[in-house]
Simulated scan of single mutants.
Amino acid sequence: MRLKDKVVLVTGGNSGIGRGIVLRAVQEGARVVISGRDEEKGRATLNTVRALGGEGAFVAGDLTIEDHCKRIVDQAAAAFGRLDVLVNNAGAGAMRSGVDASDTPGVRLRKVIGPNLEAAYFTSAYALPHLAAAGRGAIVNISSTATFHGQWGNYAVAKAGLEALTRALAVEGAACGIRANAVSPGWIRTEATAGNAGADWEKGVSLLGRMGTPDEIARAVMFLASDEASFVTGATLLVDGGLTITDYCSLPWLEAAGAGRLFAGTLRRDEPDQ
């Protein structure tokens, strides 16, 4: 149990990737505090935590409001007397940011920067003293491979800022033994992404021919939050099934030309077990 007796705050922990992080943290021995705006989902996740034999608490709030961020962090630390790990998972995806066609550029920017970058900044800033008091604290920010793809617009800008924030936090917290890292997921199967496209589309979202799962992201988070990563700080870990190293638009041409077999030739792609 890599997080035994640690207290972990997961923002947006009531659904999707955040819920997966919460449940994996419980299995790693942590006591978890879940934050979110949807109290019904939060209570449901908390019930699942308790069904697994874990200890948890739920704190409702809107992370786009600075005062809410401070209250959530303070209540999380008070729930179990300390705070060891902060996971900044909450955010608004490019398709769920609430941007309207009539919005001005400034409004568009604020709708995306607020929940994806400012929220992580505020929660981290207020968490730093608690993490320092606990000793060897850790922050893990959930970024996105959107940082590599300009078509995601302000969402990509916000997530790129989040990775820069991660490095700034690593420097800020080092003297107090606080590490800060980020996980950059590719396409992950959640309630927000499942069913949005057909099976053929899903085969193209990674080299492994499928979406990832929330638990696969959670396992990466557990590594960065634990002492197994005691010499890792300021890093961003890609967990994308090879999405960002693959030029998918060229694959049909490469297959037709046979160029995809120009490497070592030791794997026979026409064999059934390959």
Score class of each variant (00 low, 15 high):
93 G>C: 04
269 R>A: 14
41 K>C: 03
159 K>E: 01
271 E>N: 12
197 A>T: 14
33 V>I: 08
69 C>T: 12
91 G>W: 02
83 L>K: 10
92 A>Y: 09
199 A>Q: 15
82 R>Y: 02
250 S>K: 12
134 A>F: 10
114 G>F: 14
103 D>P: 09
21 I>N: 00
39 E>C: 01
222 M>H: 02
248 Y>L: 13
121 Y>D: 00
201 W>G: 09
3 L>P: 09
142 I>T: 02
212 G>L: 09
225 A>K: 01
102 S>Q: 11
246 T>Q: 08
93 G>K: 03
245 I>Y: 05
219 R>N: 09
208 L>M: 13
89 N>K: 01
17 I>M: 01
114 G>C: 04
172 E>Q: 15
2 R>L: 15
45 T>D: 04
101 A>Y: 07
125 A>E: 08
30 A>I: 04
204 G>F: 07
91 G>A: 11
69 C>M: 12
117 L>V: 04
144 S>W: 05
46 L>M: 08
148 F>S: 08
244 T>R: 08
177 G>H: 10
28 E>T: 02
83 L>N: 03
205 V>I: 07
134 A>E: 11
68 H>D: 15
247 D>A: 13
11 T>V: 08
149 H>A: 12
168 A>I: 09
9 L>K: 05
59 V>F: 03
129 P>Y: 13
6 K>T: 03
92 A>W: 10
200 D>T: 13
238 L>Q: 13
98 G>V: 04
199 A>N: 06
196 N>D: 07
224 L>A: 04
202 E>L: 15
248 Y>K: 13
103 D>S: 06
108 R>T: 09
7 V>A: 00
267 L>Y: 15
30 A>F: 01
48 T>P: 01
7 V>F: 03
116 N>H: 08
77 A>L: 10
115 P>I: 03
128 L>R: 15
89 N>A: 00
72 I>K: 02
268 R>D: 15
252 P>N: 14
8 V>Y: 01
130 H>S: 04
59 V>L: 09
156 A>N: 02
72 I>D: 04
151 Q>W: 15
255 E>Y: 13
144 S>P: 11
248 Y>H: 07
39 E>I: 12
194 A>F: 12
153 G>M: 07
107 V>F: 03
211 M>W: 11
27 Q>A: 07
92 A>E: 02
244 T>S: 06
177 G>M: 06
256 A>K: 14
210 R>P: 10
55 E>S: 11
185 P>N: 05
9 L>V: 05
20 G>I: 01
96 R>Y: 12
54 G>S: 06
222 M>P: 04
270 D>W: 13
60 A>T: 14
248 Y>D: 09
169 L>S: 09
217 I>M: 00
192 A>D: 11
85 V>K: 03
172 E>D: 13
73 V>C: 08
28 E>H: 07
166 T>A: 06
227 D>E: 15
159 K>I: 07
131 L>E: 08
165 L>T: 04
102 S>C: 11
8 V>D: 01
80 F>H: 05
19 R>C: 00
84 D>C: 05
249 C>T: 14
44 A>Q: 04
60 A>M: 09
